[in-house]
Amino acid sequence: MKKTILATAVLALSAGVGLAQDRTVRMGTEGAYAPYNFTNDAGEIDGFERELGDELCNRAELTCEWVKNDWDSIIPNLVSGNYDTIMAGMTVTDEREMVIDFTQDYQPPTPSPYVALSEDVDLETGVIAAQTGTLQAAFVAETPATLIEFATFDETIAALRSGEADAVLADLEYLAPVVEDSSGELLFVGDRVPLGKGIGMGVRKSDSDLRDTFDAAISSMKEDGSLNELLIKWFGENTATY
């Protein structure tokens, strides 16, 4: 099994060399989703995906350029050809797979936690805040709980603090630093909710060469353990690795 993976990897890597000669790969990201991708003090795109993406391009011998795009239109702009990949903490879901292709995941699926001000909130029927258009919002909509949607993530936390919402449901890696910084005010409560199939890189369906190239590069990073190192560096010791 491993051998075949390696063989395809070598094959695809050589295909990557062919690609490199005639195009620059434009990498689309949001730039506002720490620690996955964010704009650092110097105004550059930084984060787990920036570091990972640069290394992947390096291994595939591609010239890569980072492009910021608003989250809401990130997929329409990919299929329209304004950039070639999406690395924006995007969870692989069936819905998204109908429209674009994903590489294998570069972060294992992590269940989403609830955050609240106290342990004894009613997650079953209470008011749960989530960001509009996220997997978490879609999940809460199907539970008996009352969903309240905000345009940005900051507003969901502000709503929790002001008592508008009883709890917030969001990605673990995104909530973790917020809970850590709140010095005990915010707590993880209840059971975590498994959503999606891990995080992968999105590419156009018509661009299968590029997908294979990056797939191979991700495989090689999984093989030699460098992906795990990056995961631990950005998400801490306890994060799920390969």
Partner: peptide
């Protein structure tokens, strides 16, 4: 304004 004004964690910036 939205981006800069949002809560910033000390892990990702020198100016939390």
């Amino acid at each position: 304004a939205r981006e800069l004004g949002g809560t910033k964690s000390g892990r990702f910036t020198s100016y939390p």
